[in-house]
Write a protein that binds this DNA or RNA. Structure first.
Lengths: 134, 134
DNA sequence: CAGAATCCGGAACGATACTG
DNA sequence: CAGTATCGTTCCGGATTCTG
């Protein structure tokens, strides 16, 4: 399927193709709840409410949808124990674990440069909206 | 300002904090048009229409918004030449270039596993919606 | 050629309530 | 405790038009 194009500099061999794929994947795992859920699960299996509390600020519904999506993508497994108080555990699959590996550099970059970005935004905003300053 | 927490396994030192940051960054650069625009610019400076054609399927408006966002984040620079047919060039900043570096592993992962994900989705869908088969 | 402004349909998200 | 269903809102994204 993938043609045998030599990878020149990494991301831009034939942009049209690669961008689509990366875009498609990012479209799945790119939303913030997904990233956060995956991050929590990096630590090991966790129950629904545990994940919800760890993330904080996520609604019941959104976490459910997020986890269902991850399950569908084969990135996490869902294990329901038929106990009286229902208990469901989510865990990263092998594939999910390889993803977190890939995500780590991005996490580091985010942490390292997030303030720089913020600063750039402030500068830009200051230039664009001097009206707010009164 | 970041506390001197030892990074245990990479992404999960104190989830709440790190997830926020990564989530925030992903919220900015995570959408597909942004990723694609950055990918195109990895090749070097490019003009508006060039980027639009390279990406394909993006509307005038969305590309404008995307590029403005990137400019605001300090990831790309915008240079307008006051020629008769207006000509605007976009180029990655140094910060933008460090981001692409981080993105490369993710691109590889996407390429390597996108089919696996697709397959997992198909399996999952087949189990969930056997009704459509008729 | 590049961008701003406007309008509109649909998807995403949140809050709530009910089930097992 | 975990999940589903429904409803209302908000916001994103696309098509169009106009300007410099």
């Amino acid at each position: 399927m993938a043609s045998a194009k030599p990878s020149t500099s990494g991301i831009n061999p034939d942009r049209a193709d690669h961008c689509r794929v990366v875009g498609a994947v990012l479209d799945r795992i790119g939303d913030k709840w997904t990233i956060m859920a995956v991050s929590v699960l990096t630590d090991g299996p966790a129950r629904f409410t545990t994940i919800m509390r760890e993330i904080g600020g996520v609604t019941h519904r959104m976490l459910t949808l997020t986890l269902r999506g991850l399950e569908r993508d084969g990135l996490v497994t869902r294990t329901a124990y038929a106990t009286v108080p229902p208990r469901v555990e989510y865990e990263l699959t092998e594939l999910g674990r390889t993803l977190t590996t890939t995500l780590i550099p991005l996490a580091h970059w985010s942490e390292a440069n997030w303030q720089t970005i913020r600063a750039a935004q402030d500068q830009h905003d200051a230039r664009s909206e001097p009206a707010l300053a009164d």
